[in-house]
Write a protein that binds this DNA or RNA. Sequence first.
DNA 1: TATTGTTATACTCTATAACTATA
DNA 2: TATAGTTATAGAGTATAACAATA
Lengths: 154, 154
Amino acid sequence: MRPPARIPIGLALSRTAKLTSAAFDDAMTRAGGSLSIWLVLLALKSNKGASQRELAEVVGIQGATLTHHLNGMENAGLVTRRRDPENRRVHIVELTEDGEAMFGRLLLVAKDFDGRLRAGFTEAELDAFTGVLRRLERNVGQPGREPDDCADVE
Amino acid sequence: MRPPARIPIGLALSRTAKLTSAAFDDAMTRAGGSLSIWLVLLALKSNKGASQRELAEVVGIQGATLTHHLNGMENAGLVTRRRDPENRRVHIVELTEDGEAMFGRLLLVAKDFDGRLRAGFTEAELDAFTGVLRRLERNVGQPGREPDDCADVE
DNA sequence: TATTGTTATACTCTATAACTATA
DNA sequence: TATAGTTATAGAGTATAACAATA
């Protein structure tokens, strides 16, 4: 006998991710930030002195997209950019005092949010969960067959 | 002793979801569709005769946003819209022949993709995984404390 | 008045291509 | 020529507000 209609795993994943990301972004917005500002701040704090090229890779976006976000953050007084004297092509990005304050504020929100998400779970459950996430990422990396025989389905 | 730095669960989730959604959208694009077209087609097939209001809710977007997508799909000849004689405010959306063909084509791609994602997992593992996803959605629903004491951090 | 859907408009995030400056 | 970053531009997806048609 056949199992009773398997839910597409990617659909379930993206649905939950969409909901949680929206809620997280809401929380960040209420604290004066945003999801993308948070990701950039996090990358800055975890990779001090990194070039924008490296930062963009950490965040998972293109360099030009990072420039876009940094422009906004610089206008908001959260970061400064100056040329590296060692290699004047490289721009060193640093948090201002306001940027540090914003980071601290958003960190509290992020921790609170994470605690809320983890409510009712055991560490083992969540470890198994993130293990599955990692394996899914590996599976996505594998190329699938091209749908070349689908063109004339109708 | 303290556990060695817990990864924020939402960050792990959104990272994997971003990767898989991008790969899925790529696959859909190669087959002549897109992720959002697929979601709308799926909603149409699973909710025949539904109003746009209902469809939008199924997809998880606003009515105006659905109109936007339907405009594109109607221009592409995938759907038709006509007024419901019973209640002429309601527009009945139906797949054309081309729309049905597109659905069939994208369904193959979606199934292939899902099979690829599931590779190496047992049903039990994936059931546990989707169970965690559902519980996370519930946790997101719970309101967190307002960060009212952060306003004057500086 | 309430409901269904559309139009107009705009915002966010993202990307690519062409450019500047440095090496 | 190659590398780091910026500027200009665009596109996808989303949203809100104002509107038209219908009930």
